[in-house]
Design a binder for these strands. Sequence first.
DNA 1: TGACATATTCGGCATATCTCGAATATAATG
DNA 2: CATTATATTCGAGATATGCCGAATATGTCA
Lengths: 155, 155
Amino acid sequence: MSNNRPAEQRFIENAARLLIPWGVPQTAARLYGYLLLCAEPVSLDRITADLEISKSSASVAARLLEAYRLAQRHGERGSKRALYAVSDNYEGMLTEQNRLLDALADLMRNSTDAVASGAARDRLDEMAAFYLAIRQAMETALGQWRAKKPRSRST
Amino acid sequence: MSNNRPAEQRFIENAARLLIPWGVPQTAARLYGYLLLCAEPVSLDRITADLEISKSSASVAARLLEAYRLAQRHGERGSKRALYAVSDNYEGMLTEQNRLLDALADLMRNSTDAVASGAARDRLDEMAAFYLAIRQAMETALGQWRAKKPRSRST
DNA sequence: TGACATATTCGGCATATCTCGAATATAATG
DNA sequence: CATTATATTCGAGATATGCCGAATATGTCA
């Protein structure tokens, strides 16, 4: 970070622009873009300085990304200092969606009390099957990726 | 709709609960759940009555769902009346995400001006490849589904 | 335990978003 | 062209959300 400021700024804002419509708050979205540019884990103070946001905002944004599995906290040994970096598995955003697909499929399958039969019933069953099929395809693809790239633990 | 009110209500609220965290406004989310239960296209006035919302809210929610490709407007011939029903292709939510994956992959590949080399560069390239792979797997799965279920144009 | 460094929570302000009813626009029909 | 039926837009009030600085909590070291 910080050998070509303008281009980096652009990247950060572009990434944020993509994530924001998906419900990611601006600060968290910008932080994610920023972390993508950082070769090593960075401290909250560094984030605060580079992104020009308050430390409290940096803190909540970082933990939000962590909750979404988009970032990882790297505690420094012998210090309270928290360093953050993008998670090394990029699946976070996708597994979250898989959860939605599962939940939707469940809801539809278990809704015979609301619609027992008829066109709506058929559609619900079909949609449930559809979501499960897609979800399974994604699971498979994720598995294949993990297999192809088994270890990447070298920073 | 409306032969087992309590169960239907529960279904509608449950569906809404799933969609809302994804940024879908409450009214639109409930409307989607409602439409899932309707065997036939319904009018705005019917929606207004059954969902107990204002007509303006019904109108904007319906068109929001339409924009997301989650619902479809069925114009009545010889009338201004608009009838809405859930779209018969359930891919809407997924294609939207595919667009995000594509855009992210693009951004990462075209960001050599921000990071030319090093660990961050490697990661960006890897992520771009990852997103494209997943996106392609989904595309394939969608294609297979369409092939398996070629015609469903009955009611 | 005391002193320090650091992260986290809290209350308030600013801003955005939702929902509504009234006003307006647009299409259909005689 | 007037009337009616319907959808859409508009402005306002209410609600939620994001962001900040100050206050607080928590961990670390001597």
